[in-house]
Nucleic acid binder design. Structure first.
Lengths: 344, 344
DNA sequence: TGTTAGCACTCGCATTCGCCGAGTGCTAAC
DNA sequence: GTTAGCACTCGGCGAATGCGAGTGCTAACA
């Protein structure tokens, strides 16, 4: 266990370093207005903290910086949940006060404002598709042999897939298929479609439809829709370039490459675990992020987490501020989304 | 006019520099196997070329590099349309041989393979929406007061918008609206909807529908769909980081910021002018691109350009290769798209 | 007249060196 | 337990230096 003086010093080091990005020396700390100790005393304490693995020394004659373990201790025990400053709060309020119709637009706006406020990179995962129930299925013929299958959920998501069919299907055939699908699948939660309804619907098709093959093609295509995949929005990618730890092109490149593609960007956020998560450095699963911190929170509809929102930055991150902001955002998203999507 | 010897030298300088990214000296050139001249002679010629503004000298005692004007001359007069090497050709063929159903997927694949092959950044603009005709309109009620309006075009595009309506619209009301819209708008080219049909349809609505207000809301929303906006796919953003001219973070940052957002990324490509365009450095309109080259080509359906595909790199770009590849790709896209979309 | 060899000169770049200053650990005194 | 003092370490910075690639000019040559 740490003495309260050690806690004070560790705290000060983390906060100084987060602000300045430069190793913190004993002299500088002794001038800190909450610490009334001489530099020498502080040096002794720092030596102890280093021995405990909470501080690192980049080289012999430089100040100390927090180690990843140090950040972890700070986050778990020392961090003060400072109130959000008025300006930031105003910016946040403005986003969520607007009555935006489209869910996707809310997500997008969130991502933009988050990266502006934090100056880090933001990742927002749209509400997962299978949070919704099927509202309607439609088939629209294009040229001979191709049909667009459309699926509408009660969350307002519209998914479309093109399906290849026999060349000689008639509008009538399509109407029959659509009819069957709508009767059988309406109000079915997407999460259960593949597991609980595929069997039943395909059998019903075999029994009642001439165009069994083609109907099955549609059903297959609908079931192939990845339920995990809501869209992933990445904002403020270039913000990380402003951080001194990423001024080296070779260091950022793999990171940017990671963020460039939706699939890999999505993996940055931990799997939907409810609540707020802080992943410091090597705590991240993705190897590219060993020198980054990801703070993520989920948002929920009716108590079920349906998406997540996260901030990616260097381990030298303003933890208190980001945690506070994400807290606000995840609550706001939960509220807004519930308003839109709940029990519809 | 340049002597053929000057052309030979300019050509060699461009090609050497493109390969090595280092200023080309007279000695190096004299060892070039097509140039049987002494270094001194070459120096004289280079001095002349510099006077003409075709070459630059980064500093007194370094070799020469092509000026933007030099590149321009090279592209217009000297560049050999070398054949694509077998490997590259194979990779390209493979993309376009696949029978991909979805147009968007073709575009996406194109973008990926292009950036892999060129090692530059690729921008592909999906076929503009208004290249298509309206195939079907649907309305799906969500919660009370919101309805999803869906528009399907014969290009297979599906656009959806949420529309706010009176709380008490009945499914019957919606059916009437849908009915009217489908009757009036089917087969109408999107490009003409707003200008030619808005008036007519809204009058018809006023005449025959009780729910005039709500119907109009739908129509307005449909007309608000931006016809220019097909999606913009950007690929290989991180490739530019590998280019020595962009090793400086402060130089790339604005460029990456430009590419990050779809709207601004789209502006990188010149407006759909048919044929292949090479924009060198300051020839680009976007100020961020003053030290870049953009090579772009359009693809067409039935002779009408509907989208474009481009490559963004440093002015020190492998012009011959990229031009050749883009030529191939734009032709292939035209062919494939026409197959999918033409006269449907 | 065009081409080439030779030479002095320029200039960027990498290396070295020495210095400075911030910061440390240790010891001894308070 | 705390603090002052002191010797030591080490990275960073600027000046000095040497190297090498490349140039322009001149004079000789075909």
């Amino acid at each position: 266990m740490l003495t309260s003086r050690q806690k004070l010093i560790l705290s000060a080091i983390v906060e100084d370093y987060v602000r300045s990005a430069e190793p913190v020396g004993s002299r500088a700390l002794s001038k800190h207005n909450e610490i009334h100790l001489s530099a020498a005393t502080i040096r002794n304490e720092m030596a102890d903290l280093e021995e405990m693995g909470l501080l690192d020394q980049p080289h012999m004659s430089a100040g100390r910086i927090p180690s990843q373990k140090g950040y972890r201790f700070y986050v778990d025990n020392l961090m003060m949940r400072a109130e959000i400053d008025a300006e930031t709060l105003a910016a946040l309020r403005e986003v969520f006060v607007q009555r935006m119709t489209e869910v996707e637009r809310i997500i997008q706006q969130t991502s933009i404002v988050l990266s502006q406020l934090t100056q880090y990179t933001t990742i927002v995962k749209g509400p997962r598709l299978d949070a919704g129930r099927i509202k309607r299925v439609e088939l629209v013929p294009l040229v001979r042999g191709t049909v667009v299958a459309i699926l509408v959920t009660d969350t307002g998501h519209v998914v479309s897939r093109q399906v290849l069919m026999s060349e000689d299907v008639t509008p009538d055939d399509l109407a029959q298929i659509v009819n069957l699908l709508n009767t059988k699948l309406r109000e079915v939660p997407l999460s259960r479609m593949r597991s609980h309804f595929y069997q039943e619907v395909s059998e019903e098709m075999a029994r009642t439809l001439e165009r069994y093959e083609d109907a099955l093609a549609v059903l297959d295509e609908l079931c192939a829709v990845d339920p995990e995949s809501g869209r992933v929005y990445v904002g403020g990618t270039t913000n990380i370039l402003a951080q001194p730890e990423f001024r080296d092109v070779d260091k950022v490149r793999p990171l940017l490459a990671l963020l460039e593609r939706e699939e890999t960007a999505g993996q940055v956020l931990p799997k939907h675990q409810p609540g707020l998560q802080v992943r410091i450095g090597r705590e991240n699963e993705v190897p590219m992020l060993q020198e980054c911190t990801v703070i993520a929170a989920t948002y929920a509809v009716d108590g079920v987490p349906v998406g997540s929102v996260g901030v990616l930055g260097p381990t030298r991150m303003n933890y208190a501020r980001v945690v506070r902001i994400l807290d606000y955002v995840s609550n706001a998203l939960t509220r807004v989304m519930t308003e839109r999507l709940s029990g519809a």
